[in-house]
Amino acid sequence: MSTNYNDLQKLNSVLDSFIVHKTIPALGTMLGEIIMHSIKKTHEMSITNLDLIISDLEEMNVMSAVYIKCDGDLHMGALLYLPENESKTLASKLLGRTILNELEGITPSSISEIGNILTASIINAISDNTGYKIYSSVPGYAVEFFRTLLEAVVSDFGNESGALIVSHVEFHGLKSGIMVHMLLIQNPSEVKLMI
């Protein structure tokens, strides 16, 4: 592994600051409630050790997920996910009405929009602080087990080194109890650009 502990700690702090100043206000406004967050861990891992970040809970639950890829002066992958049944609650909250049909097309669109806004808040914060130009892809939506989502994201991100920097962020709506997870993925070679 090429990234030392101090650099990972610094990256953690930088991301935390961006999330506090940009992402939390954006999500709070969308959901109309106070949002708490925590970055559970920022670490470097080999792509052959993905099992390390797949919890039993995530192995058993089908997730709704949105993936956005960011390119430009800095490369980043953002995977937003939450259990599928909770995604309907989240979509209902955004739309102001109950989602009755799980196949209703509006659910993927509204979850994708949340992914879009959260990712944009982070890349805007990075751009504001560093001057880097970063472009984000259209959001990709999926309903699958976490293992499948992670495999697809890592494959798509496809860096040469075989290692990734992964930050796991949790957002928690205090009133609704909704828990949204976000994985931020970066190349180890680009950590220094952020800190």
Partner: peptide, 11 residues
């Protein structure tokens, strides 16, 4: 795995 609303060839 990931579907998107516009067909841009991503993913």
């Amino acid at each position: 795995i990931f579907a998107h609303e516009s067909e841009t060839g991503l993913f």
